Every structure is written in structure tokens, then in C-alpha cells.
Simulated assay, not measured.
Amino acid sequence: MNQLPTVENTAKVNRGLSFKFDLQAYTLIIALVLIAIIFGFFTGGEFLSSRNISNLFTQMSVIAVLAIGMTLIIVAGHIDLSVGSLVGLTGGIAAILQVWYDWNTLMAVLAAVVIGAVFGLWQGWWVAYRAVPAFIVTLGGMLIFRGILIGLSKGQTVAPMNASFKEIGNSYFPYIPGYILAIISIALLFFWTARNRKKRESMGLMLPSAKLDYGKISAYSFFILLITYMLNRYLGIPLPILIVVVLAGIFIFISNKTAFGRYVYAIGGNQEAAALSGINIKKNTLWVFITMGALAGVSGVLLTSRLNAATVSAGNMYELDAIAACVIGGTSLIGGKGKIVGALIGALIMASIDNGMSMMNIETFWQYIVKGLILIVAVWIDISSKK
């Protein structure tokens, strides 16, 4: 006679599942720690210096913003090969409007984001309403946007930007406000954890161990304070990484707590089932591409601001870095699976490898080889886990 599961047995099973889930979730963090230790050792600790960590976060911000949008694109079952060229184009337009036509910083930034969204709308229309594969549409977009940039700029480097524009990518949040912001972030983490536990309990849903939940939040809090301390030892928290954190928070909320986010995952998971359940696939696909275009505009502003110039080669190959960051972060190229937090960690891993190998004076061709191998292994792990 089969024995019915007892409360004790169920708890054991749940603990096992929780451990397995956590092990998978923290694999990226473990990999990041190992990368930091290895490069820290081979650079005599310079890789882990406050100055280099600050530079690392600033450098990764452009790819991180692109990875946020690319996560939604890939989750929906598509791909966007045009984002690198769109970064160059939107950043170039912002520079041209300010340097050649004397637009103020706010209007130039808004123009870059709006133009990015419009081009995203154009590509999304072809994919959603004309059923042209996203690979072809965005491959064409990659060439078109680069051509428009070369035509508008006449092949010239457009510089310098106004001081207020340069501050977007090169300024820092002061020390004391930085610590206040870190404490507020930690308080919000504990508040949302307690709120979610209370909500699950009121709905009669199964609750993870309180020690597990609050232990994770305590670990997050430790790392938030540690990173804030390290950054404040240099010049403070870089403004670009704060922009990334704000955008990530917005899109994590959208992907997890809104109907649009759920629809995107449903479309990528099983498009036929999503259509039968009443989801407007064309409309939601269109909005995914609009979002990606707007975020490419933000990245274009950050890149132009950091470099204090716009060039015809700006953003070259950034689409591959963004896709690699998503895949390394656990986003499935088949669609239906992926997390923004994972993509951000993937972007940090890619930036760390570039930064560490440069500090070790390793030749550039090795950096391309290593990143390519990492991408192949990440996809292989994703496929193996499905089997």
C-alpha cells in the first residue's frame, strides 16, 4: 500500500527543491567570484581595486542596458542584430543635434530615445504584421542604421559635447547619498520579501523557509554595502550604473508583475497556445521591439556621453555582446525563458573578462576567442539542461 506523503516528507522534498534551485540561480555569481579571484591574483590585486571596479561598472553600463531589452526580445522568441548600429545612430543623432544645431542636453537625450523607439517600431511592424523573420529584418536594420549614421555625420567624428551631456556618462553619486541609497535599497528588499511572504501565506501557498528567504536578502544586503563601500573609496557610485539599476528595476517589475510581461513569456514559450488563450501576439511583439529601440537610444546616449564624441564605428558588434550577456545569464535562445538579473550578471561577466584580460596585456584576438568559447559553452549548457 502506498504511503501518503507526510508533512515532514513534504518539507524534505521542498528543501531539496529549494537547494537545487538556489544552486542553479547562484552559478553565475560563483562564476563571477571566481573570475574576480583569478584576475585579482594575476594583476596583483589591481583588478579588485576601487578604481577598476568603478571603471568596470561604467564600461558595462551600455551593454547592460541593451541586455535588458534583448532579454525580452529573446524571451519572445526573436533576435535583434541591429542594436549595435542603433546605439551608434541614436548617439550620433544626439551629438549632431547638440554640437551642430545647439540643442540642449535634455532635448538631445529625448530625441535619441524617441528616435530609437521609432526605429524599433518600424522593425517590429515588419516582424509582427508582415511576418518577416526578425533575423532578416534586424540584419537589414543593422546595415540601414549604420548607413544613415555615416550619411548624417558625413563620416566625421562629432565632438565635443556640452558639459551637462558629458556628466551623464562620467559623473558620480556623492558618498553620503550613496550610502543612503544603499540603505534604502536594503530596506526595500526586506519590505518586499516580508510582503510577498505575507501575501503567499494569505493565499494558502507554500512558503519557503524564513531563514532561506531572509538569508538571501542578508547576502544581497552585504554585497550592496560592500560594492557601495568599494565605489565610494574612489569617486562614488557612477551615474551610468545607477541608470542601469533603475531601468532593471522597472523592467523586472514589468516582466514579473504585469500582463505584458506574462504575455511575452507565454508567446516565447508556446506561440500557438498563447494565441488560443487570447493574447494579441502582434501587438505585444511590436511593443517588445519598441522597447528595445528606446533602450538602444539610452545606450547610445550613455556611450556618446562617456566618449564625449560620436563616431561612425560607435556600437560596432555591441549586439553580439548583448546577446552573449543574455545567453550567459540563462536566457534560452528558443524563447520563453530568461531573467533580466541573469542578463545583467552576464554583462558583468563579459565586461570583467574584457577588463581583466586587458589589464594582463593579453592580445585582443585572445579576448575574442575566449568570449566566443564562453558563448558556445553557455548555449551548450542551456541545451543540455533541457535534455
Rank of each mutant, 00 (worst) to 15 (best):
L23P: 00
N270C: 02
A128N: 03
T291I: 12
L286C: 09
K216R: 12
D22P: 00
A134V: 01
N256D: 01
R51V: 12
P240N: 02
I176P: 13
G236L: 07
L86P: 03
K198C: 15
S85F: 08
V158Q: 01
W366H: 10
E46P: 06
L149K: 01
M292Y: 07
G178Y: 09
I93R: 05
L121V: 12
T10I: 09
A134S: 15
M230H: 05
M317D: 03
G300E: 01
Y214S: 10
T6D: 05
S358R: 09
P208K: 14
I374G: 10
L344D: 01
L106K: 01
S313W: 08
G151H: 12
A134L: 01
S164K: 08
T228D: 10
M292G: 07
Y172T: 04
A117T: 05
A248L: 12
D102N: 14
L375G: 11
R146A: 13
L225M: 14
K257Y: 10
S202C: 00
A210S: 11
K216L: 15
V377I: 15
T90I: 00
A343F: 14
A163N: 02
H78L: 00
F222I: 09
D80S: 10
T105I: 14
S185D: 00
A322C: 08
E363S: 13
V83G: 03
Y26A: 00
T193G: 15
G329W: 07
L139K: 05
V244S: 04
T304K: 02
L375S: 09
I281G: 00
T6W: 05
V33W: 09
E46C: 02
G124I: 02
A64G: 11
S49R: 08
L143F: 08
I186T: 01
G141Y: 02
L66N: 05
L17Y: 07
I184E: 01
S255R: 04
V33G: 09
L295N: 03
V127Y: 07
K339Q: 14
G342D: 02
F19S: 11
S299I: 03
G268R: 04
A112M: 09
E319F: 11
G91H: 05
E8M: 09
Y229S: 12
M70T: 13
G329P: 13
V370D: 12
G77R: 04
L205P: 00
V341H: 07
G300S: 02
I279K: 08
W103K: 03
A248P: 01
S385V: 06
V87Y: 02
G151P: 01
A117V: 06
E46D: 10
I237P: 06
F119N: 00
I136M: 07
I38C: 09
R146E: 03
F191G: 05
V118Y: 09
G268E: 11
K339L: 14
T58E: 15
I252E: 14
G372W: 12
K257S: 10
